[in-house]
Amino acid sequence: MTPADMPSVNARAGAAVEALRAASTELKIGVARGTSGETVIDAGGREVGSIAAGVKIAEICMGGLGDVRLIASTATPRWPWTVQVHSAHPVVACLASQYAGWRLAHGEGKGAFFALGSGPARALARKEALFEELGYRDSADTATLVLEAPRPPPAEVVERVARDCGIAPERLNIVFAATQSMAGGVQVVARVLEVALHKAHELKFPLERIVEGMGAAPLPPPHPDFVTAMGRTNDAIIYAGRVHLYVSGAAADARELAERLPSTGSRDYGRPFADVFRHYKGDFYAIDPMLFSPAQVVVTALESGESFHAGQVNLDLLDASFT
């Protein structure tokens, strides 16, 4: 099945949003109508949210084409609770939907709003050059956007998103959760597979050859400070994320991909992410992009049956970040 033949990620996510709304009380989230008629779901702003809500939101981010679970793992003994992700359609689920690639901003100064949008609404708006390469286009009449933010976007951003998606605002769902919240932490760490897909793309590995993928990363404890919380979610992947990709084509290519994928190859590897972020004075784009990678990878070449292992879990740096 090619990306062009894939089902609508927004239609699949819309059904998951309805289930999220129906369970709002038990998930400790808030549901309301915004000023433009959009549905707004607070999963970690004024509402406390929950880990269970984060799991469901992570699946919404993947457009209903991924399975996300919370499991216990011995890979990180001091931090055993782990977010596990799997997709049989990883390119569309991760890059056409889950990837936080839509920059949304409005205003200046203290009242300014800025957030990176993830989720299936991206596949309707197609504002990123990446979509020209993916070959995937959604055509749903409803859209769902997920924001890593402590508050909902202002009306100006809502109307822009609806316009770019080609829908009426009342057909738009916006889910938001701060990085410091429990749900926010889960949905960011659930990008462990997406991070590997994105780096494979940066390494020029043909995306159509990535057949299936799974990943896991430890669930970090939340922290009220934004930089610390952001650091922990990144470190969960950089120093303890584990990914297994199944690829077609030559085994030599699979071996090279495995060797180049882990975070250990980055010039900025070796310090908790919060320290790296402060070193660059908060300039996210000054950080080596090769750092955003899982710690350990396995790449299986389907034609030959060979598997190639690279990278390692760094428990010392994980502890330095999480404690």
Rank of each mutant, 00 (worst) to 15 (best):
E132K: 15
P294A: 10
K281R: 15
A125W: 00
H201V: 07
A143T: 12
A217E: 01
L65H: 04
A129E: 12
E18C: 11
V297T: 06
R103H: 15
G34Y: 03
E202F: 01
W102N: 05
P90M: 00
V91R: 15
A140Q: 07
G215I: 01
N10S: 05
N314H: 12
E128C: 11
A52G: 12
F205K: 03
R126W: 04
A310P: 07
E170V: 04
V83R: 00
T323D: 14
V276M: 09
K204T: 12
M62K: 02
R163I: 09
A162L: 11
G215K: 06
C165P: 06
A217T: 00
L317Y: 08
H279V: 12
I51G: 08
E303S: 13
E38N: 05
G119W: 04
A217W: 00
G111E: 07
G305T: 11
G101A: 01
I174F: 02
V157N: 04
R69M: 02
A216K: 02
A310H: 13
V192C: 15
R126N: 10
A320Q: 14
E132F: 12
K204V: 09
S321K: 08
A217Q: 02
P220C: 11
R242C: 01
V189H: 03
F131Y: 15
Q98M: 08
E156L: 12
I287R: 00
V146Y: 07
L20I: 08
P169E: 07
R209L: 12
A52T: 04
F114Q: 14
C94Y: 03
E202Y: 00
A13Y: 07
H244P: 02
L172E: 11
V299W: 03
G66W: 08
G119Y: 05
P206C: 02
A123C: 09
A295S: 12
P90L: 05
G117F: 04
P218S: 10
H279E: 15
D42T: 03
S50A: 09
E202W: 02
A11M: 09
E59A: 14
G109A: 04
P220K: 04
S307G: 10
Y285Q: 13
Q180F: 01
V157P: 02
R171S: 13
T76H: 00
L20D: 05
G231T: 05
A13G: 03
R160L: 13
G63A: 08
Q296G: 04
L172K: 13
H201P: 07
V243Y: 00
L261Q: 04
E306C: 10
A196I: 05
F226C: 11
K281D: 15
V157R: 03
G111N: 12
T300A: 06
M1K: 14
E132C: 12
A93W: 04
E303N: 12
A301I: 06
A143W: 02
G215F: 03
A43S: 02
A72D: 14
A295L: 02
A11N: 08
I41E: 09
A254P: 05
F284R: 15
H201F: 01
A190F: 01
H198G: 08
H223R: 05
A75L: 07
D268Y: 09
L207Y: 11
L145E: 08
T39N: 08
G63F: 07
